[in-house]
Amino acid sequence: MKTPRLLLAAMLLPLSFAAHADKLRLPADAPPAFQAECASCHLAFPPQLLAADDWRRVMASLDKHYGDNASLDEKTRRAIEDFLVRNAGSVRKLGAGKAATGEPPRLTATAWFRRKHHEVPPTDWTHAKVKSPANCVACHTRAEEGSYREREIVMPDGRRWED
């Protein structure tokens, strides 16, 4: 009895490490344009949260950016895309950012993201303070610094997140 359990734990350990992305610091090679162009409207999303092909799709349709026109000149667009692709996550770990037809991929639509948030009740997602699942700072109070630890989570109604 004891051995299989230990074995199971040993097998799960590396998996749980891989799935615990407590730290998603902005990679040091971020071009200044990443902050100036992307992070002026939303969080400087960690490039690790989408796979390379998905980032390429996002960056190929900036004129239709989730209802906004976020077009950039080609040089800037290229610099940001290269940075995102260089630091992209693995599609095997994340899954694809499946979005509605005609929409660019969403980092909130990967299997990984949904698995990490499956315990969050619908009332939190639709809370007036949240507005969008991509509004990380609504609950991850230190997301701006790239920190997503569980103990830093404050739900929109003020309650702490208990596992």
Binding site: S40, C41, H42, L43, Y66, G67, D68, K129, V130, K131, S132, A134, N135, V137, A138
Partner: peptide
């Protein structure tokens, strides 16, 4: 917001 001397919030992203 109605007062440009005040901070605002992006209505879609809440930034």
């Amino acid at each position: 917001t109605d007062n440009p001397a005040q901070p605002g919030r992006h209505v879609v992203t809440d930034k």
